[in-house]
Simulated scan of single mutants.
Amino acid sequence: MGEVAMGEAVITTRRQADGSMVVDVRGSLDSATVEPLREALLETMQRDRPTMMVVDLTYVTFMDSVGISALVAGQRAARDIGVGFQLRNPSEFVHRQLRVTGLTELLGLTGTRHFGI
């Protein structure tokens, strides 16, 4: 559906046949790149009202607390309008960041791979 460059990161959104929207994120999620992601998540949910919002983190190389905050904002917005929200394919680093903060379940990562710390 669209691609947005966010400095060192790129996001692409696409609708799947089942009505869900997939947001593919590539690069680093930090203070320099995260605001366009937050806006894309919120605008896509408001405009398209998908059945599920899936954020694919396969190619996210780094994420700090600001990136985590954007994902939590997306999850809250989805909950408020009745849209499912799920993260998919986090790298070991990203998964660890979310697990340390206690957010894996909130962000739909229960039952995913576990990494030793």
Rank of each mutant, 00 (worst) to 15 (best):
S31W: 04
L41G: 00
S28P: 12
A17G: 15
D64P: 01
V10M: 08
S28L: 09
L107D: 01
M63D: 00
N89Y: 09
T110R: 12
Q97V: 06
P36T: 10
G108K: 02
L103Q: 03
L87C: 08
R15T: 14
T12M: 14
Q16G: 06
A78F: 01
D64M: 07
R14V: 05
Q97H: 05
G102A: 07
R99G: 07
P36K: 09
S91W: 02
M52W: 02
I117K: 12
F93W: 14
T61A: 15
I81W: 06
R88D: 13
D56G: 08
P50I: 04
Q16R: 14
Q16L: 13
E43G: 11
R14F: 07
R38N: 10
I117H: 14
F85D: 04
D30W: 06
T51K: 13
F115S: 12
H95V: 09
V34P: 00
T44I: 08
I117E: 15
L98A: 03
V100Q: 05
Q97S: 06
E3V: 11
G116L: 10
L37M: 11
S65T: 13
A78E: 02
R15A: 15
R96H: 09
R79T: 12
N89D: 14
R47Y: 07
G74H: 06
D30V: 09
F85V: 03
Q97D: 03
R76H: 12
R49L: 10
G27D: 06
Q16T: 13
R47H: 11
A32P: 05
L106Q: 11
L103W: 04
V34K: 00
F85K: 03
G19A: 07
G19M: 08
L107T: 03
L103D: 05
R47L: 12
L98Y: 03
G108D: 05
I81T: 15
S20K: 08
S20G: 13
F93T: 15
T51N: 12
R49K: 12
V34M: 03
R26L: 09
V25F: 00
F115D: 13
V72Q: 04
T51A: 11
P90R: 07
R47C: 11
D64G: 10
E8T: 10
I11L: 14
I81G: 06
G102I: 02
T110Y: 07
T104L: 05
L98H: 02
D80C: 04
V60N: 01
R49Q: 14
G111V: 06
D24W: 05
Q16K: 12
T110M: 11
E35P: 01
L71R: 00
M52Q: 07
G111R: 03
Q97P: 02
T110H: 12
G111A: 07
N89G: 08
Q46C: 10
V83W: 02
L42K: 12
D18A: 09
M6F: 02
P50L: 08
F93I: 14
A9D: 08
V22H: 02
